[in-house]
Amino acid sequence: MALSTPSVYVLVVLAAALWGASPVLLKRALNRGARPRQAVLVALAVDTALVSTAHVIVHGSDALRALLTADLRVLSLFVLTGALGTGLGRLIGLIGLERLGASVYSAALSVRPVFATVLGVTVLGEPVTPVRVAGVGILVVGLLVIERARSHGGGERGGWHRRDLVLPFVAAATYAASRTLRRAGLHVGDVDVFAAVATNELAGLFVLAAVLGGSSGTDVFTPPRESVASLVGSGCCIAIGMVAVFGALAAPAGRVVVVDPLVATVPLFTVGFAAHFLDTERITGRIVLGTLVVVAGAALVVR
């Protein structure tokens, strides 16, 4: 049965709340001794296991057949998006999270719609509208407000450098490219949502495990015990949010202009969770104001 527009809204807001909690949980794990490469692998392994389990629950004994009979050209898109966004993007982003703190990192990551718009204009020939241009300007203003919060002690209490903002920007670019390809894959070929998500996450996990395992040895698979609960929680948030967004995008009402503005609210949830659960982070008025402006700009960019 096709999802109604209100159901799409509920799914995407749920995903935004869960994705807002995920960086806070990851930061707690980093504060407890986990390193970025350990954190991203454990969280992604949990994420992949949950998505694959959901795939089996939905399809039962036909789960493997659903993967094998899917359009290989379309599935290859999800292999690419998994390696690019789920693998490389998350690792780069996690390094940024460690340096910037959850609130600043999440707000800076909100430039993703700008990259998505650039891709849409240059690759798909989408029009450049005055609203989008205004959204980019507003988003930049929000980022400048957040950057100014740095000199007033906002974000990571140990301090952070302006150059570290490049990390969430790079991660945002990989996420934007991945989401564009995912959207195309879901609507061009006959691919089940769970099969698509499972392929996406498995590809990201295999790429990261191969790269990080080869360069760092088995230590990358053994994070400190104190950090495991937070990493598992983050993986659960990512998995449930991912399935919710894939389901929303696959619905007739799940247009990007509906989904992306709601996903843009993720930093608001992150700021709220960080204020309550991260004692290594200082949420100032400038951080809150900058985040609100960034979210408003990001929402306009995707209209």
Rank of each mutant, 00 (worst) to 15 (best):
L68P: 01
F206T: 13
V51L: 11
L300Q: 00
L300Y: 00
G153M: 11
S215W: 12
E226I: 04
L212V: 15
P261Y: 00
R282T: 13
I95G: 11
T117C: 10
L143K: 03
T199W: 06
A66H: 12
T81V: 02
A239M: 11
P36Q: 00
A83E: 06
A29D: 04
A203D: 07
G20L: 05
G158N: 09
V245H: 01
T53S: 15
L144K: 04
I95L: 14
S106A: 13
L75A: 06
A229S: 13
V145G: 06
S4D: 13
A17S: 14
L212E: 13
G153Q: 12
A253R: 04
A251F: 09
G20A: 05
A298I: 00
G213L: 07
L18A: 07
P130V: 02
A29S: 03
C237Y: 04
R255E: 13
S22L: 07
A83G: 13
D260L: 12
A173V: 10
A176D: 07
V141R: 02
L41G: 05
H152M: 14
E147C: 08
V104M: 13
S4V: 07
T122V: 15
F115Y: 13
F273D: 00
G254T: 02
V243Q: 07
G125I: 02
A107S: 14
A298G: 09
A63N: 08
E147Q: 14
I283A: 01
R132W: 09
L44K: 04
L300M: 08
V245A: 03
H187N: 12
T86L: 15
T86G: 11
P23F: 06
A229P: 09
G87I: 03
R282L: 12
S151F: 14
G125Y: 04
L262I: 09
S7N: 07
G158F: 12
R37N: 13
V24Y: 02
G185W: 08
A248H: 02
V288C: 05
V136W: 05
T86W: 14
A198K: 05
G96W: 10
P252Q: 09
L26V: 14
S61T: 14
V263W: 09
S22K: 01
D62I: 09
E201H: 15
P223M: 08
V114E: 03
F246L: 09
T270N: 04
L68E: 11
G93Q: 09
S52L: 15
Y105C: 10
P261R: 05
G101F: 11
I283Q: 03
R132C: 11
L231Y: 02
